Structures are given as structure tokens and as C-alpha cells.
Computed example of a mutant assay.
Amino acid sequence: MDPFDEAMTTQFACSVNNEAVLRALFKVKETELSFKRAIKIATETEDAAKIANKTVYEEQQKVNKEIMDQLTVDLPGVAVYLDDILMPAPTNVNSLRSFLGSVQFYCEFLPNLSMITEPLQQLTKKNVQWKWSAEQETSFLQQKQLLTADTVLTCFNSKLPIV
């Protein structure tokens, strides 16, 4: 092997920061490895990795779409998430405050919200022990139902009058 070619091949192999390329380079016998061949192996390996990543990404997108299709129901132009995976019942004061904050964002569109949230608001007060009872569960489910109502989640339609 030409000393310059050997030096370039060694330099190239030392600078590669891709495990798959290094594995492919080390599979070739030293006597058969030239700088030109090392570049070709690296290019082919990286191209194959890009294709594999693209395929995995596309498959993951299909799986995600299937999952979302199972978890959603279409209202007029709106996807409403019904599964408890996406809106589980709070398990502590911090998650309850987070949920109540999310609900509060829509307070202008939710009738009687303060009455409905009262059982949950009680749990956020200082020196109140956490106890999730049927009353809190009912309040939580009512709020979820209000949030998913078509009066709250509708897409803007420029043909309809703005109220």
C-alpha cells in the first residue's frame, strides 16, 4: 500500500465519529483498504443509515397516526382526546393545580365553572389532606366533559357571525 494512501486511510478512520462506519471499516482487511475505499464504505454506510432512519421515522408516524385515530373522535373540525392517557385524573396537589389552570384558560366558555370546580379547589387549600373521593371524581369528569363540548372546541368559520 502507498504510504500516503495508508496515512490518509488511518487519518480518516481516526476522525470518523460514527460507530456503524467504523465497524464497516474494521471488517475490511487492512491490505484491501485504501483511502478511496474507506470513503466509499463510509458514504454507503451513512446513506444506508439515513434510509433506515427515514423508514423507521415513517413507520413511527404511521403507528402514531393509528394510535391517535383510536384516541380521537371528530367533532366539527376538532379532534377531542377522550382517553385517560391524555387527561388522567390528578394524583396530587401539583397535578390538580395544573389541571385547574388548564381548565381556567377556557373559563369564559364554561358555564357554572366555579361551582363545578369547587370540590377540586378544596383540595388545593393549605393544610387540607389529599383525598380523592367520588365528589372530586364527578367534578373532574364534568370538567372534562365541558372541555370537550363543541361550544368550547370549535374551529373558526369566517362564514359564521362572531358572537
Rank of each mutant, 00 (worst) to 15 (best):
E46G: 04
F105D: 01
T148V: 09
T10D: 08
E118K: 00
Q142R: 10
F99A: 11
D84N: 12
E66T: 11
Q145T: 11
Q70M: 09
R37S: 11
D2W: 00
A89W: 01
V28Y: 02
V21C: 14
Q136T: 01
T124F: 02
K126L: 03
F26C: 05
D74T: 15
P111D: 08
S98F: 11
E108C: 09
A89S: 15
L110K: 00
T154G: 02
A48D: 03
T9N: 03
G101I: 05
V56R: 13
N157A: 07
F26I: 08
V16D: 07
E19P: 00
G77Y: 04
N17W: 04
L25I: 06
F109L: 13
F12C: 07
V56Q: 11
S15V: 06
D2G: 00
I85A: 11
K54Q: 14
V152I: 15
N94I: 09
R23T: 11
I116K: 01
L96P: 06
T151P: 01
C14H: 09
A13E: 10
P88I: 03
K65W: 06
Q70N: 13
N112C: 05
A38Y: 07
P76I: 02
M68L: 14
S34D: 13
L123N: 02
G77H: 08
C155E: 03
S95W: 07
T43W: 08
A13D: 01
F35N: 01
V152Y: 00
V16E: 11
T151Q: 09
A149G: 12
V103K: 04
C14S: 15
V152Q: 10
Y57T: 10
Q129N: 13
V56Y: 09
R37F: 05
L153W: 04
I41D: 06
F99W: 08
M87I: 02
I39P: 00
L110Q: 02
P119T: 00
Q136A: 05
A89H: 06
K36T: 06
C14W: 07
L25Q: 10
Q129F: 08
Q70P: 03
F12M: 03
S133V: 01
T72C: 11
Q143P: 02
T10R: 14
I39F: 05
T124P: 04
K125E: 12
T124M: 07
N127D: 15
T138Q: 06
N53E: 15
E108G: 04
S102R: 10
N127F: 12
V152A: 10
M87N: 09
S15N: 12
T72G: 01
P90H: 05
A52G: 04
K62D: 07
F4R: 07
